[in-house]
Each structure stands twice: as C-alpha cells, then as structure tokens.
Design a protein around this nucleic acid. Structure first.
Lengths: 211, 211
DNA sequence: TAGATTGTTAATCGATTAACAATC
DNA sequence: TAGATTGTTAATCGATTAACAATC
C-alpha cells in the first residue's frame, strides 16, 4: 500500500516526461527548466513542477532540473530499474507482435513465454521465446518469476483466465481483451488497452470535425 | 467544428457504455435504469445521466432507457453508423495484427490496404488485404476514400510520414509509434496508443502495491 | 549579490456527485 | 393516481493554473 495516494492523472503523465527527458538526454542536453520543458511538451510549467513534487524535489532553484538525474529518478518511480518478467497468454497476431517488440526490454520488461490452446503453435518460437500449451501454465508460473501476464486472447476466455492467473499468484495483468476484468482483489493491478475504444474515440472526433 | 464542446473525459466513457449496452442487448434485456447500469459498470448513476444528456435525452422518466435505442444512438454518436476505411502504414507484426482483428469491421472500420518499405513484403496479402510499397501511397489515397491512417511503423519515420499523410488529405491518424506527432492542424485528429506508456503505468502500480 | 527558477500555497477551473422537481 | 426514474440544477470535490516567497 502506498503512503500518500498519487492520482492516476499524474501517473499517466510520467511516462511522457520520461520520454521527453530521454530525448533530451540523447541530444546531450544537461539541464532544463520547467519552463523550457513546458514549451516542448505543451503543458504548463506549473503542472510539471506540481507533478514532480509529488515524488520529491528533483530540481534546484535558479538552475532547473538536471536531465540525466531526473530521467533516472522518473525511471525509478515507474519501476523501470526493476526487471519485470512477462508471459503472454494468447500467441495469436497481437501476442506475437508484442513479443517482437524488443523495445520493451530497454525498460526492463522481458517476455519470457507465450501460451496458447492451439496445438498448431506447439513448439513454435517467437524471437526465440517458446509458445507453451496452456495446460503448462501453472507449472511454468510455479517455477518462474512472473510479474505480468498480458492477455491477448479472445474476450470470451479472458475473464476466467484472469481469475485463474490471480489464483496462482499473478498480481499484474495487462489486458488487451475487450472486456472489463472482474477482479476484486486490491493486490492485483490491471491495465487495460482497449483498441476498439481507442478507435471509437478517434471516430467520434472525426465525425465531430466534419460538422 | 462542434457547436458545444463535449469534454474528452465524457467521450472516453462512451465506448464503454456502448459495450455494456451491446452485452445487455445480446442478453435480451429490453430496458435499464441508470441505477441498474451504474451497479454493473461501477460508475455513479449520476454520471451516466450527465454523460448521456450531453447528447440528448435518451431516456424516459419512470421507465429508464430502452437498451436497443440507446445502443444505436451511442453508435451514431461515435460514428459507428459510418464506414471508416483504414490504411495501415507499417506491415510488421503490429500492422498485421490489427489487420487480422476482424472485430473492428463490426463497428464499421475496414482496413483496405497496408503499406511498407520492405520489398520482401511486396505482393504479400494479410487476410486478403494487399501490402503495397510505400511509394504507391499517394496514388492509392488519390483513388480511394481513406478515412484513417494507422501508423504502426518505427518512431523514427512516424512524424515525417504523418506530415506527409496530412499533406495528401488524410484527416485522422491512429498513432502507435512512440512519439507525439507534431501536427498543428485543427482539422486533423490524432489518437495515440502508446503501449510503452501503458506498460509503465502498470509497472508503477505494481511497485506501489509492493510497498 | 542579483537573477533565475524551484517548491509550495492559494485561486481558479472543470468534472463528478448529490438532490430534487418534472414527468412518464 | 402512485411509483419510478429521468433531466437538470446546485453542491462538492479534485485537478490545474497562477502567484510568490524561498533559495540556489
């Protein structure tokens, strides 16, 4: 449990700060003021300072923020200094796409196995990572540190699979299935990626713009 | 331009209402009150009524909401009664995964072509949809109605590609590249799906829960 | 020291919730 | 008609922005 609760609105912005600071770092920029950053990111300087000060004072009056230091600190806040092992449940197109997305590894996210019910996928490997049959799931989780389960399966099975994952000790679910998982366990965190919802939002804005 | 601006917070919730109403419809439920829906969706009844009344009075006092009617009206609000043709720029794993996701078609989203620079993909088809070489893009857009371009390419090329798409008349971009597209054109709408950001948010919540 | 810029408090703005009159 | 439930106004809550004293 956290001591003082930080709103998810703030958390949602942190990866974006991290991204911009990473680019500044690559560009060799040493320090930056909240004002300069605010111009680049199109948010207010006030918001940047408020957001950061939820986690501590990372800046220095009269100087601004040291880019490298702030980048690293935000990385720690986001847990990117830890290794997070991921299993992907559903080795279809999306599951394989995620597995091929090597960039996640730079942030400490490592996909260590895929699972599927389709016997045709038995023995197949994606980027050297093996697809297991779903009945091996419990064994695998018992013998490996699994931090996150990504659900990239049809929505019909997603909820029951999620419940099962929780029952065998998984505490974090990255859900791509188009359902709200019904898990009432405070210790389990769920992050949804609802692509259809995203597309519908885009569609709304398209139609609105036509008017 | 819209007459009265409706906040994106409201828009973000509409697809979720649509989903729940679709399920109620499939389950044969004829009418529902904001209160019953609020229990199922875990939001306040007040919010449901406020949200819906941004778009008009879809309910009836003493009765509630007709499920089929409300479902269809929200569909119209989201533009799902229109056909939206999509092209996918970047025919890698993610582009192909999106193309294989047939469910989008149920909502009027139709992928009509993929584009890539990789000559190895020339002539390849995904679910019967052809992968074109990127140099055919302008021609294709001139001869076909293209409503949305999905960017599933590496981030290095995303911004310049987006600018080019806008210059040839594309007004909506579904961006999967890990950059903020720099487009200052009011008539162009961008919807971002930043998977790394989503994963980092999950990671934050994992680490927070450990404490 | 003077100038710059943070950290933080106070003011504003917007979104959510509560309450209730209108009405089916 | 009586009961139920919306549509909508008013109250509350939280998030964003502005302001400025602290301080490097």
């Amino acid at each position: 449990m956290a001591q003082k609760e930080i709103s998810q609105a703030v958390i949602r912005r942190m990866p974006r700060y991290y991204r911009y600071l990473g680019e500044l770092l690559d560009a060799g920029v040493e320090r930056i003021s909240s004002n300069d950053l605010s111009n680049q990111m199109q948010v207010t300087a006030s918001q940047i300072r408020q957001d950061l000060n939820n986690f501590g004072g990372f800046g220095q009056q009269g100087y601004g923020y040291n880019v490298k230091y702030l980048y690293e600190e935000i990385g720690k806040i986001l847990g990117l200094d830890q290794v997070h092992n991921i299993i992907v449940i559903g080795a279809g197109n999306l599951g394989q796409a995620l597995t091929n997305y090597v960039k996640f590894e730079r942030f400490g996210f490592k996909i260590i196995a895929l699972f599927d019910v389709n016997p045709a996928l038995e023995g197949v490997s994606v980027r050297g990572i093996k697809v297991h049959m779903l009945d091996e799931l419990d064994d695998f989780c018992a013998n490996n540190k699994v931090d996150i389960a990504a659900l990239t399966m049809p929505k019909a099975k997603a909820d029951i699979t999620a419940k099962h994952l929780v029952s065998i000790g998984i505490h974090a679910i990255w859900n791509f299935a188009h359902v709200d998982l019904d898990i009432d366990n405070e210790d389990v965190v769920v992050e949804n990626v609802h692509l259809s919802d995203s597309l519908m939002q885009l569609s709304y804005n398209i139609e609105k713009n036509k008017k």
